[in-house]
């Protein structure tokens, strides 16, 4: 039964995907990373160009296929036919035509392309733009809001209809920052600060992922981008700026102790409790956990954030995320339970 419904889903999503492809992104089914996107001004410009080129490509492909079909099925003979083919070796007009016609089509593609390049790579942005510093690590995303004193991991919130300016930093190797729904990707290159500037125009939760191969867990380097309403963003900022919640339950209180005493605190910041320390800088650090409980996902956004997944992750990070830098601490039983309870309480 289960497999049948799964198969239905396969077929259903497949057909839908085909329709999406055919109708250039007008479909409305579950494909959170689809690239015919219109979640921001950037995405709309790209999509518009994407559609134009797809149409030109389709026209040319159709012409080639029609000519090929005509050549094979209509304007040729088969083996055994007594007539010898004509020795037609060249035709200046024809050859000029198929040199000039593609050149014209290319002009129709190149001009909007260059205009879109200039539009999508502004060298200036308004002073009230919200700057988000994106730090790529092997294999998770850190988001800092320099003006707002917020740091978060795996999940980034931005308000709708404001200019958002992403600055891309890498501490280790080359990654690529990609949120299809809001526009294209940019590589995150160590020693170089790349930018993406966009104005989100739709609220919702969008999926992002590292797009440049970055080693063992490249596939497990995802993130979520939440576009809030202006009020929603204000509330989120206030909540994130607040100090961490005091643990109430006994289990969570015990968990706080474990967190402080176990190596967790070396790499993970919980404001007021622990801080990533330069002294123990091994070249990598873990996400800021001050408001960990408020996030939807964990471990590079590969799991939903719930106690069961968190316990599984802490127990053996390497097993569920190959190459993960977080060590196995050998916590089990009540210790593990209490630590999970504490972390989940950090709303």
């Amino acid at each position: 039964m289960r497999s049948v419904s799964r198969l239905n889903k396969f077929v259903g999503s497949g057909l839908l995907a085909a329709m999406v492809f055919a109708f250039f992104g007008c479909g409305n089914f579950n494909a959170p990373m689809q690239t015919f996107a219109s979640g921001s001004d950037l995405a709309k410009w790209i999509t518009s160009l994407y559609i134009q080129i797809t149409i030109w490509d389709s026209i040319v492909l159709a012409i080639v296929l029609i000519v090929l079909a005509l050549a094979i099925f209509v304007f040729s003979t088969r083996e055994g036919d007594p007539t010898e083919p004509h020795e037609h070796e060249s035709d200046l007009m024809l050859e000029l035509a198929w040199t000039i016609a593609p050149a014209l089509i290319l002009m129709f593609i190149t001009i909007p392309t260059v205009r879109t390049i200039m539009r999508t790579q502004p060298s200036k942005w308004p002073a009230n733009a919200i700057t988000v510093q994106v730090h790529a690590h092997q294999w998770w995303w850190e988001f800092d809001y320099p003006g707002l004193h917020i740091a978060t991991g795996d999940e980034v919130h931005i308000p709708i209809n404001r200019v958002i300016h992403f600055e891309l930093y890498s501490d280790d190797i080359i990654h690529s920052f990609w949120i299809p729904a809001l526009g294209g990707k940019r590589d995150v290159i160590p020693g170089q600060v790349n930018q993406i500037t966009l104005i989100p125009s739709v609220t919702g939760e969008f999926y992002g992922q590292c797009a440049e191969f970055c080693g063992l867990s490249h596939a497990n380097m995802r993130f979520r981008m939440v576009v809030d309403t202006a009020d929603g963003f204000k509330q989120w900022v206030a909540a994130q700026q607040a100090p961490p919640v005091e643990p109430q339950e006994a289990a969570a209180k015990n968990g706080e102790k474990i967190f402080k005493n176990a190596p967790c605190a070396i790499c993970h910041t919980v404001r007021g409790i622990s801080g990533f320390s330069k002294q123990y800088d091994y070249g990598f650090r873990g996400p800021d956990l001050t408001h960990f409980g408020s996030r939807g996902t964990l471990a590079g956004s590969i799991f939903d954030n719930n106690p069961k997944n968190l316990a599984m992750w802490i127990q053996d990070p390497e097993k569920v995320k190959p190459g993960a830098r977080m060590p196995t601490l050998g916590l089990r039983g009540t210790d593990l339970h209490d630590l999970v309870a504490y972390l989940e309480s950090l709303k």
Partner: peptide
């Protein structure tokens, strides 16, 4: 297009 033109009118 030149390949297509080679096929065109040929005895295939």
């Amino acid at each position: 297009f030149s390949w297509l033109a080679t096929v065109w009118g040929g005895r295939l």
